[in-house]
C-alpha cells in the first residue's frame, strides 16, 4: 500500500502538483490517468523520490518515505521496481545483463542463482532467445518487457510503470497491460501505472486516480468511470468517437 497525503510539487514558479491525497492498494493495478502534461510523470517520480516534494507525505505501508534520510530511502528503494516510459534499458548491456544488473548490485545470490533468477524473469515476460541482444537490436515491445523483467528481478513490493504501452501497437499494448496485472496479482505488489490510454483503463483500471492540471479531479474504478458527473473526466474519457458511441448505446 502506498498513501499520499497532500503532496505538492513545483518547479520554480510552475506549480505541477496540488494537494494530491490518495491511497494505492496492494495486489491491484492502480492507474494514474490524465492528459499529457497534467503531471502524471512528476507525480510518479515524486512518489519514488526522484523528485523531492515541496510538502506533504508519502507512506510506504507505514513508513513515511518523505521523512527518511538517504539510507532509509535506499532501503525502501530496494523494494521498488520501475518501468520507465522509454524502457530505460542500459544501452551498454545486453538483455541478460540488464536483468542481471540489480542482482549484481544488491543480491547476495551465487552466480548460479542469479542466472536462474534472470532466466525466470525473462521467461515470465515471454522473452526467449534474446539474451545476448542489445537494447538497440530489439523491438519497442520487447524493450518494455525486458524493462519489466529488470524491474521485478529483486522481487519488488512496489512496481511503477510510466506509460508502459505508449508507442506500442494495440495488440502488444494489451499484452503488456495484462502482463503487468498478472505479475501484480502473482506477487501481491502495489503497482502504480501512468497512462493516458483508455484501453488500459478498461483492461486493468482496478483503482484510478484522474488528475487534471495537477489537481486530483476524481478517484474510482473502471466500472464507475463511465457514470460520473465530473466534467473534466468526461471530457477526457469521451474524447474519442468510439467511447462517445459506447456511451450513447448504453
Amino acid at each position: 500500500m502506498i498513501r499520499l497525503e497532500n503532496v505538492n510539487k513545483s518547479f520554480g514558479d510552475l506549480k505541477v502538483l496540488n494537494d494530491i491525497s490518495i491511497t494505492f492498494e496492494s495486489g491491484k493495478t492502480n492507474l494514474i490517468i490524465g492528459q499529457s502534461g497534467s503531471g502524471k510523470t512528476v507525480l510518479l517520480k515524486s512518489i519514488i523520490g526522484l523528485h523531492d516534494v515541496d510538502n506533504g507525505a508519502i507512506f510506504y505501508n507505514d513508513r513515511n518515505f518523505t521523512e527518511l534520510n538517504h539510507k532509509g530511502k535506499k532501503e525502501i528503494r530496494k523494494e521498488m521496481g520501475m518501468v520507465f516510459q522509454g524502457g530505460a534499458l542500459f544501452d551498454s548491456l545486453n538483455v541478460e545483463e540488464n536483468v542481471r544488473f540489480p542482482l549484481d548490485m544488491f543480491s547476495t545470490m551465487s552466480e548460479k542463482e542469479k542466472s536462474k533468477r534472470v532466466a525466470f524473469c525473462l521467461d515470465r515476460v515471454n522473452i526467449q532467445n534474446a539474451n545476448h541482444l542489445y537494447p538497440a537490436e530489439i523491438s519497442g515491445g520487447m524493450q518494455k518487457r525486458v524493462a519489466i523483467a529488470r524491474a521485478i528481478a529483486l522481487n519488488p513490493k512496489y512496481l511503477f510503470c510510466d506509460e508502459p504501452n505508449s508507442g506500442l501497437d494495440p495488440v502488444t499494448a494489451i499484452v503488456i497491460d495484462n502482463l503487468i496485472q498478472e505479475i501484480t496479482k502473482e506477487f501481491d505488489m502495489t503497482t502504480i501505472i501512468n497512462t493516458h490510454d483508455m484501453n488500459s483503463v478498461m483492461e486493468i483500471g482496478e483503482k484510478i486516480l484522474f488528475i487534471s492540471k495537477g489537481y486530483k479531479a476524481w478517484e474510482g474504478n473502471k466500472d464507475q468511470i463511465f457514470n460520473t458527473e465530473n466534467q473534466a473526466l468526461n471530457d477526457f474519457v469521451f474524447a474519442s468517437d468510439l467511447f462517445k458511441n459506447i456511451k450513447k448505446s448504453t
Binding site: 517520480k45 526522484l50 530511502k73 520501475m82 516510459q85 544501452d91 544488491f106
Partner: peptide
C-alpha cells in the same frame, strides 16, 4: 543516458 532516463533507473535502484 540522462535523457533516456537510464540515470533515473540507476537512482531508483538506490
Amino acid at each position: 543516458m540522462r535523457v533516456t532516463e537510464q540515470i533515473d533507473a540507476l537512482e531508483i535502484m538506490g
